[in-house]
Design a protein around this nucleic acid. Structure first.
Lengths: 353, 353
DNA sequence: TAAAATCGGTAAAACGTTTTACCTTACGAA
DNA sequence: TTCGTAAGGTAAAACGTTTTACCGATTTTA
């Protein structure tokens, strides 16, 4: 007694319908001109009845393209990652691509969560790349939040790769990232439109890409508005609540009416410092955040902030990669370095003066 | 001129070393007793030199097991999902399994984010299951945050499946979820230990599993402490800030010294309502949160809350599934329904009276 | 009417592995 | 000498598809 176990195979369908394997394959792949409608229907019915699905393993083995792209994530737990990955997955789904994610879990392994460690990164990367190599991927997307030297990111296979959020400093690799210059610019313009001209800045680390570019935008806007950019009014710390707390305290004696915090976390620290002194954010002083994390809505008063285009970054990167894959003619240079704007979300922490 | 392009194959290694394919395969799979050390070394060197990796496609096709488990996520963007998935990935990595994630993106598609829609769920599920079917997976983990009738979750193939966080009401499926009863119990015990006996509760929806179970725990603790459980002191709303705001306002006239909020979001709404009336959380009234979301640290004063064992749920589910796969003898019933405790994180929003 | 094209269909090769069964050769034991 | 066995190695089957080349019958074209 032959016990057929497991999922049905194409052979089972062929046998059941009394036709050859090729015929079944032709029906399934829409080569309907090669098979009579009568038989086609019979096959479709049998497929339906048995719930047969072609094994993508066998299909891909034959096809040499897997229609699968790999995502290397610095850390899935970091707040920006899931949204970026979600954007990637959405675009891939639309285009019929699969996604496999490799998580480097760096956030928890770095000495300080926000402090990159190039050596550890590269080590982890070389753990992870061989794994992806064996998966017969069509392309790669790197998702991280730092600027990196990723010379070993480009694997020996020469898979097409694009960066999402992160940027590779040592290679010409297509990149989708935040438009931080415009972001900083827009914040200041907005604050000025609300009547503020004495504006403090609570920034991230001084050597961080985001910090640097946003400051550039701030300076540009201030120049346009004929406001003197006073370096004493900008405090560099880390991106955390603690950083914001320290920074705000350092700014307490300055004569400012508004403070631009470069992350919502920083803003929450600013709130804490302010509240401690009995200064009411959104009333006695205006506070602007950045990131549009959940936190920005749960603070009281609700924080006016910038919404990061995370899903757009992800889906842009994915679409670009797929474009690269499908038009072998086009070169990565066509994409180069795309910067996507953040959107200002007006809530209650900035008042008009 | 024969242009060898793309990644090297096992055949290339074999040719380069002047041996047969089988020999290379034997070396790579540690059947070292079948091949002389001399040749083995030569092969290893060549593999190293070329960076050859066996195609997992071909390997899995032959093996019939893919060492890959599928994750069906209700929504990757929901706050609990990434941590659970992370836990799954970690365990899988340790055991040498791959993970592929399918995201149903339900959060954005439900009419209200927190309101489940059984019909939509089942439709989406039947979109997603065939896809997973073709991936030759070894098993499935369902990651969601609701109680569901998932009769069609068990695909025709009969893949082993385990639930993470979510629970299937209509099937005996191994489940790893929150121990909500103990959670509610612990909160009340803690509050009582701080001298509180008049305690309000800001709960989630009245028919939600988490709500129901936590209330059970609350009642148990109150019974032990000989506190009358007054239904008037518990307000059911949704899990959002808005729900907390409404609930807190409804509780304002009651004579309570502490309020147990069943989510940090609810707590943030409670803060807002309180602050509006000039009542200081952590000083004039104690507030307890639940979830340990980022928000709980950014509120002022920082929120005492319960840390959800999300990674543990994920890794537990994965380990259980892998156990099921590797000991074909064991039955799913051995796992049944595991509840994992949350941990109390003491911060500044509860004071001793 | 002969040649060409179309239609409906099949056998078999190919994708890159792992594994089974088998083949030599050498060596020790009977 | 003959047999058995172990060591070192290989050919070929198998996994489940897609695709190429081909085939016979019918229809169209010239």
């Amino acid at each position: 007694m032959e016990q057929r176990t497991g999922a049905p195979r194409i052979k089972d369908i062929a046998n059941a319908c009394g036709v050859s394997i090729s015929t079944v394959s032709n029906v399934l792949n829409g080569k309907s001109n090669k098979v009579s409608e009568e038989i086609a229907k019979k096959i479709r019915d049998e497929v339906e009845r048995t719930g047969y699905r072609p094994s993508s393993l066998a299909r891909n083995l034959r096809a040499t393209s897997t229609k699968t792209i790999g995502v290397i994530a610095e850390d899935l737990i970091e707040f920006s990652t899931p949204a970026i990955v979600e954007g990637i997955m959405k675009s891939c789904e639309e285009k019929g691509y699969n996604v496999v994610i490799e998580n480097m879990r760096l956030f928890g392994r770095w000495k300080r969560e926000w402090l990159r460690d190039e050596a550890l990164l590269n080590k982890t990367l070389s753990d992870v790349l061989p794994k992806m190599d064996s998966l017969n991927l069509d392309g790669l997307i790197y998702v991280g939040s730092h600027e990196h030297t990723v010379h070993n990111l480009v694997s020996a296979r020469g898979l097409p790769i694009v960066m999402a959020y992160a940027v590779a400093v040592d290679r010409q690799i297509p990149t989708f990232r935040l438009d931080d210059i415009t972001g900083g610019y827009d914040v200041i313009k907005y604050l000025v439109s609300k009547g503020h001209r004495k504006i403090g800045v609570l920034a991230g680390e001084i050597d961080n890409t985001h910090t640097i570019n946003r400051i550039l935008g701030v300076q540009k806007a201030m120049f346009e508005e004929k406001i003197f950019f006073d370096p004493a009014l900008v405090k560099y710390n880390d991106w955390t609540k603690d950083g914001g707390y320290k920074g705000m305290n350092a700014l307490l004696d300055e004569d400012i009416t508004a403070v631009f915090c470069m992350s919502d976390m920083i803003a929450s620290g600013a709130y804490a410092a302010l509240l401690e002194k009995g200064i009411m954010p959104g009333k006695d002083i205006s506070v602007m955040g950045y990131d549009n994390q959940d936190t920005s809505r749960t603070l009281t008063p609700e924080l006016t902030t910038m919404a990061l285009p995370l899903q757009e970054i992800g889906s842009g990167a994915a679409k670009a990669l797929i474009g690269l894959l499908e038009n072998p003619g086009s070169s990565p240079v066509d994409i180069a370095d795309i910067r996507i704007k953040s959107a200002l979300i007006e809530r209650a922490s900035v008042r008009t003066i």
